[in-house]
Design a protein around this nucleic acid. Sequence first.
DNA 1: GCGAGTCTGTAACACTGTTACACCGCCCGC
DNA 2: GCGGGCGGTGTAACAGTGTTACAGACTCGC
Lengths: 239, 239
Amino acid sequence: MSSQASSPERGAGGSARREADGSARRAADGSAKRALTRGDVLDAAAAIVKEQGPRALTMRKLAAELGTAVTSIYWHVGNREELLDALVERTVADLGEIRAQGRSPATRIVSVTRALRAQLRGHPHLVAMVHERGLTERMFQPATQALVHEVHAAGLRGTQAAEVVRSLLFQVVGFVLVERNRERAPVQYPGDESLWDEATAEHDPALAKGLAAPPDPERLFLLSVRAMVEGLLGTRPRA
Amino acid sequence: MSSQASSPERGAGGSARREADGSARRAADGSAKRALTRGDVLDAAAAIVKEQGPRALTMRKLAAELGTAVTSIYWHVGNREELLDALVERTVADLGEIRAQGRSPATRIVSVTRALRAQLRGHPHLVAMVHERGLTERMFQPATQALVHEVHAAGLRGTQAAEVVRSLLFQVVGFVLVERNRERAPVQYPGDESLWDEATAEHDPALAKGLAAPPDPERLFLLSVRAMVEGLLGTRPRA
DNA sequence: GCGAGTCTGTAACACTGTTACACCGCCCGC
DNA sequence: GCGGGCGGTGTAACAGTGTTACAGACTCGC
């Protein structure tokens, strides 16, 4: 545990390290060379994750991208796990608020879930990373806040309101997880087409066709959420 | 692509390789030594995954467990990816049917979703593996079948029926994914408790308490599914 | 006996995360 | 001036991963 220099990646609070200190370095060969900062590392890491996914983020690759050595990365961010944590943290912080739209509480709730889904889909790799890290609670704080407000407006209180909010959150997150999964692996074993013929679909050709065709996520999402909101609130949400 | 011996891991259909051939080998040291079979490899792999999760399944570890060399594993199952595929395939095949219970279609549908969730929860690692592999469609065939039947019984047909079935499946799978995730990472940043005080919960102490406390998955699942079924079918399911 | 096919073992390759340790440059106190 | 320490970098290694080329050994059919 003891070492010659205390690495700076400690203390979850300290965000800016050398950022404010604009001092440049002069490398041995005379070329100007800015000192590497934690922010630089996170930026580069975010770029790699955004383009190629979290699995492609290796410490060596990251170091190469930054034109530095692996050890520098470790100096600034601790280790890979902490790097990913920091990345998630930063992205979540950048997500911003969610505003409800519509008249009735039901439609406003639906609008919140749609906004949340859009946010998640806007950062595809983030979802998986948050999922793996178990940071869901933290990530969905803003959406939860908005939902709490709307559920309150719908007249629900206390434990019941909490359960409704939880149900909706689970629903949205779960949906996006499944949706992402489907997109990543569009080819299924066995293919959708062969699985549903006349017999298995109880002689309902339209049903067979509906199950065989790839789902329209947008439509499916709306249908699910509306149904759930209706069931939870007893009010039918309007478009 | 060409090699001296065609490895046996080909041709998704051929399951039994040497299983039927009960011939024993005699090792150089004279000890009896059964020939390794694909089934042995899958069994050992399944055991490791069951106990320590898919990430703990390394080819070397597996080989050590079986008292053989890594190359033998590769001979029998191709590579790690195919090994996991085969594992998933086998487990899914073992899951068996799902039977609906109850009187009204709505309650029968709820019973199917509960059974599906129970199945998934019975094989915790399987869920993640299937998820990563994008084999959802295949896995949920039996449940889909049951749902199709019940939705039909409820009077829905064609595209509409297909959408309802899809919504329900997405709902269950998504729920289990989120649920599993929560169990795996019970400690959240920041803790549930600190996130919901009087102010953020709009001065509804019971709501704050409800959101701060860990959810009761069983209860939440039932609530969600019932609400969704009600919204989708227009009929309230009874316990 | 012998050849072919079926497996197994040795040893390597390329790659991963991680760390011990030497080193370099700057700044601060003296 | 100058020594020491701090901040940061680079070299090189360790252990572990998936994967494979290749040399064998074993069994079976002829």
